[in-house]
């Protein structure tokens, strides 16, 4: 199963972190830092795998991909295939690209909940659910619609920004 999904920028700032086994927050932060310290030392154009037994325990593997200013990281165990996980990162990035049309780091920073919606459609409880970005997009749009519907009942603006925008 998949143990964790992380996105962090090239400065090591986490942009999204999801652990599928419960971990205390301190441990999560420690792992994110640990992964980044290895990632940032790796040259370009080398393999996308990391040996991370020291961080995540035996039989854990890690694949990552580096896009522009972001690292996409998947941590998983022996029940997943390394190359398939690389493809999954590709699926995730493709979906985000469709979502935000030409995704960049700022999109991910400012759309925290949408990011989770996308991720939850692809990976759920550590299991891969959907590998087609079209299907994922459909589901995410449906969720946004449902959210909008549930919000429209409320007449009071939800936030200061909304209030100022009026």
């Amino acid at each position: 199963m998949i143990k964790a999904v992380m996105m962090m920028n090239t400065q090591g700032k986490p942009r999204l972190a999801k652990f599928y086994d419960y971990l205390p927050v301190e441990k999560q932060q420690e792992l994110i830092r640990g992964v980044f310290s290895v990632l940032c030392s790796r040259p370009e154009n080398v393999s996308n795998f990391l040996e991370i037994d020291s961080l995540f325990g035996p039989d854990s593997r890690l694949v990552y991909k580096h896009y522009a200013t972001l690292y996409f990281v998947l941590v998983f165990d022996g029940s997943e295939n390394e190359l398939a996980m690389l493809d999954l990162i590709q699926v995730l990035v493709e979906t985000l690209d469709k979502c935000f049309s030409n995704v960049c780091e700022l999109d991910i920073v400012f759309n925290y909940s949408k990011m989770h919606a996308v991720l939850d459609e692809i990976v759920f409880g550590g299991q891969v659910l959907e590998t087609s970005s079209v299907e994922v997009m459909k589901a995410v749009e449906e969720i946004s619609k449902l959210e909008a519907a549930s919000n429209s009942i409320s007449l009071v603006p939800k936030s200061v920004s909304g209030w100022r925008g009026r």
Binding site: V109, F110, Y112, S113, V156, P157, K158, S159, V160, S161, G162, W163
Partner: peptide, 12 residues
Amino acid sequence: NLFQRSLEDLIK
């Protein structure tokens, strides 16, 4: 409710 900062506000 009126003056609550949303997550977006927090991030910004």
